[in-house]
Design a protein around this nucleic acid. Structure first.
Lengths: 252, 252
DNA sequence: CGACATATTGATGGTAGTCAAACCTGGTGG
DNA sequence: CCACCAGGTTTGACTACCATCAATATGTCG
């Protein structure tokens, strides 16, 4: 499941290695493609926690990739309720128009300090699958992956209890972190406040708190600072009916 | 919002006109593209209600488009709970692999008798955006549309009450039906059982029943056989905080 | 230290789930 | 034509999960 202790970790390397390694795990890249991706990451931008990357309805003009830090996509309701759709982790792409209209269907906000590669030129390349087949395939796979997570999220929200939702989300995030070099059974970064988890999982902060306590009491998870350890990933996956997305890239 | 009473309705025409009209509403098609799409719909397949179009995990081999009838995408949990992700209406595409791996991430089941065009060859064409630019753009827009509906669904499930969820779903379906030729303020087909709505909205059948009654009592909707009328679409949209998806095709 | 965000705890109430039964409705067949 | 049945809808009684409100810790940062 995880690389051995000595295996290279994407996140340990220079940020500008992270993206091409991540894309390569979706589909093999040519040397040319790889070097272009690396160039893209040469001068990442840095933004603070709480920054809006883009806002619902706005024209998507600055597509990017996260090289470090976390963000999320969300929508605000008229009365202030907030729904988080998914989380963006290092190596994830954001802000790329999908349909004909390049208008954002969600907002996106950073949850931590974040460093960002601007991927405008990569996005141009993806439009020419003949010249850049590896990149195009990796891109499509990355999108498919994001959609798979969204489907998981719908299941959590629609048909799972608070206990199951939290277990499911933590296992999913654990696996995603595993893919980028953290090992599933050990402490991994988890910079989500309980309020953020609540807004993602459709629960109240109070109930998230109590449910997390239950998971800790049962010795299924362990929390420390802004990090988390899944003590029993298999038990958690079982109670949450978690399924590994098919076609998932293997870590390392 | 809707075409006048005398305007042509996509669904009134021969099924084999529906698809190209629908795709044209996303992006203009060349004469060649249009005629190919029409040919695709020449000999639709017919299947009964309750047929599985494909099953989660299976290799997607028979991509298609709905020419008549309704279907849905769903997932079953280990203990029998069921979550419906979205509904497929006439003119919608299904079963097209998105990422590298052509494995279904959901199952899909027909809700009514359905007629289907096999779109394997169209799907090949979409891979060559240089030769078929209109089709490629329409395809991308159709996908974007589907994703927009999925985002709406997450909001419903995560942050809305039963009352809001149902209102929101009905308005969304109303608008989608409006796009394919029914008019928003009049009776439109609505072949969903309360159980299906419950499995889509993360509610129990009983509660769906009671909430629908409330909407009827308040004279916001009217139901008859397998059809529905939104008496006050604006009020419903307001209580549900419904937003028209940007870049939506206009009906007619 | 004080200001602020986040986490925790307790008490109470409401929304929605569960269980169970009755009631339609359309279709089938004797 | 009516009995019968299956699937869907409706109703009632009861329960429980989770939201809400409010107050108190804990922690972090200038």
């Amino acid at each position: 499941m995880s690389p051995g202790a000595g295996a290279p970790r994407m996140v340990d390397r220079k940020p500008h290695d992270l993206l091409w390694r991540r894309l390569s795990s979706f589909a093999p890249l040519s040397d040319q493609e790889r070097s272009i991706v690396r160039q893209t990451c040469a001068a990442p931008g840095e933004v603070r926690a709480g920054t809006e990357l883009y806002v619902e309805g706005e024209r998507l003009a600055k597509p990017g990739a996260l090289l470090a830090g976390w963000a999320c996509r969300l929508r605000l309701l008229a009365d202030g309720r907030r729904q988080i759709f998914d989380f963006l982790l290092p190596g994830d792409l954001f802000g790329h128009p999908t349909g004909a209209e390049p208008l954002a269907t969600t907002s996106a906000v950073t949850l931590t300090a974040v460093s960002i590669a601007s991927t405008g030129c990569l996005f141009e390349m993806v439009r020419e699958p003949d010249r850049f087949p590896g990149l195009a395939r990796a891109w499509a796979a990355a999108q498919a992956r994001q959609e798979a997570c969204l489907l998981n999220h719908v299941v959590r929200l629609g048909r799972q209890t608070a206990y199951e939702r939290i277990a499911h989300l933590l296992v999913e995030l654990g696996h995603r972190l595993d893919e980028i070099g953290f090992s599933l059974g050990s402490f991994v970064p988890m910079p989500l406040t309980q309020e953020v988890m609540a807004d993602a999982l459709g629960l109240s902060v109070v109930h998230v708190n109590r449910t997390l306590q239950q998971l800790r009491r049962e010795r299924l998870i362990e929390m420390k600072a802004a990090s988390l350890r899944l003590i029993e990933p298999d038990v958690l996956a079982a109670v949450a009916d978690f399924r590994l997305p098919r076609g998932a890239p293997s870590a390392g």
